[in-house]
Simulated assay, not measured.
Amino acid sequence: MTDDRDLAGTEADGVSRFPLGRRAVVTSGLISGFTLATARVEAQATHTDAAGIVAGETTIASGRDHLPAYYARPDGRGPFPTILVIEEIFGVHEYIKDVCRRLAHAGYAAVAPELYARIADLSKMTDAKAIIRDVILKAPDAQMLADLDAAARWSADVNHGDGGRLGVTGFCRGGRDTWLYAAHNPRLRAAVAWYGPIGGPRSPIQPRTASDMATKLNCPLLGLYGGQDKSIDIAEVQAAARHARRAGRIVEIVVYPDAPHGFHADYRPSYRAADARDGWQRMLDWFRRYGVS
């Protein structure tokens, strides 16, 4: 159990900011605003307010480190069903924070840890290719899985979360990590992957692809993909889903024919409002259907 005295902070308008933990990592906090690694921020970017919820920044102990994280939950004692939110390659910036607030308004205790904090400060990086080369491909999957386990424990201990009602969702690289985490944590009830890569290179620190783990899923998984996504082979995604179903797993893949990669990312030109709304509702329905809420 985390000592609440270590997390004591101030709250204003439902937004909390807690001091950093005793052990520092590379990043001293989360990105303020949107990532610098996209060309521009679109006018349609959603801002969800904190009225009726509690939201803010904190740190989460994972091993010997404290990782920056963002959380949001309904205002009340709970316990609330918990959703782990896995970032894109761009870090826990305003878009991911807003996703957490949206989930809180839907009744969930959401938490998004900054999984790459040990490697680099994503708030200062502007080149997406450099982020992939120098950060993403250098992040061990075992550490990512352990950090998500730590976030789930933190939510149950501190964020009024219900550890027995646990779900996960992730975007882009976080979608890929959603597949892996669903194969890792037997306590998960449901998972939703947004355009997560299925294949990709293997390495000693990233030894398995999402496709490799499809037959080992511990919970029902919903995959939301764009038919115009140039970075993901939809046929490969469907093949992974078939392998999973033959192994007795529950996997549903929804493909939006005209959507590109990142169609839920409302701060980018890739955003497709109708598909994003439909995917969001399907996600909430999936969590309800399989007992997260």
Score class of each variant (00 low, 15 high):
Gly78Lys: 09
Ala50Ile: 02
Cys100Pro: 00
Glu57Gly: 11
Thr48Cys: 00
Lys138Met: 04
His66Tyr: 06
Ala45Arg: 15
Leu67Asn: 07
Ile60Ser: 03
Ala50Tyr: 02
Ile89Asp: 00
Cys100Glu: 08
Gly63Tyr: 12
Pro68Thr: 04
Ala139Asn: 15
Thr38Asn: 01
Asn159Gly: 13
Arg73Ala: 03
Thr46Glu: 14
Gly33Thr: 04
His47Glu: 09
Ile83Arg: 11
Tyr70Gly: 11
Gln44Phe: 03
Ala45Pro: 14
Ala43Asn: 02
Tyr108Gln: 12
Ala61Tyr: 05
Leu103Ile: 11
Thr126Asn: 05
Thr38Lys: 01
Gly107Asp: 14
Ala139Ile: 06
Leu67Gln: 08
Arg64Gln: 12
Arg77Phe: 08
Asp134Pro: 05
Ala43Phe: 00
Ala142Phe: 05
Arg40Tyr: 01
Asp98Gly: 06
Tyr116Thr: 01
Gly52His: 01
Ile86Lys: 04
Phe80Lys: 03
Ala152Ser: 14
Gly33Cys: 08
Leu148Pro: 04
Trp154Ser: 06
Ala142Gln: 12
Ala106Cys: 11
Ala55Trp: 01
Tyr70Pro: 12
Thr35Phe: 08
Ala156Asp: 15
His160Met: 10
Gly33Asp: 07
Leu122Asn: 02
Val99Asn: 04
Gly91Val: 00
Asp134Asn: 12
Leu145Val: 06
Thr58Glu: 05
Ala106Phe: 10
Phe34Gly: 03
Ile83Leu: 15
Pro81Phe: 10
Leu67Thr: 08
Pro74Met: 11
Ile136Gln: 02
Leu122Ala: 03
Ala50Glu: 05
Leu67Gly: 05
Thr82Cys: 09
Lys124Glu: 14
Lys124Asp: 08
Met125Gln: 07
Ala150Trp: 09
Arg102Ser: 07
Arg73Ile: 01
Pro79Met: 13
Ile53Trp: 02
Pro81Lys: 11
Val99Ser: 05
Lys97Thr: 12
Ile86Ala: 05
Arg40Trp: 00
Ile89Ser: 00
Arg73Met: 08
Gln44Arg: 05
Ser32Ile: 09
Glu57Trp: 09
Ala142Pro: 04
Ile89Arg: 00
Lys129Cys: 00
Ser32Tyr: 07
Arg40Ile: 00
Thr59Met: 13
Asp65His: 14
Thr46His: 12
Arg40Met: 01
Glu57Val: 10
Pro79Ser: 14
Ala139Pro: 03
Asp98Arg: 03
Ala110Gln: 14
Ala150Thr: 10
His105Arg: 10
Ala104His: 06
Phe90Asp: 01
His105Ser: 07
Ile119Val: 11
Ala151His: 07
Ala106Gly: 07
Asp134Cys: 02
Lys124Gln: 15
Gly63Leu: 11
Ile31Cys: 15
Ala106Ser: 14
Glu114Gln: 03
Pro113Trp: 08
Val54Trp: 08
Ile31Asp: 10
Ser155Gln: 09
Gly78Ala: 15
Ala106Tyr: 09
His93Arg: 11
Pro74Cys: 10
Ala150Leu: 10
Met125Trp: 04
Gly107Met: 13
Ala156Tyr: 12
Ile119Gln: 07
Pro81Cys: 12
Arg40Leu: 01
Ile83Ala: 13
Leu148Gln: 11
Leu103Met: 14
Trp154Asn: 09
Lys129Ser: 04
Ala69Pro: 10
Arg77Pro: 10
Ala109Thr: 15
Tyr71Ser: 08
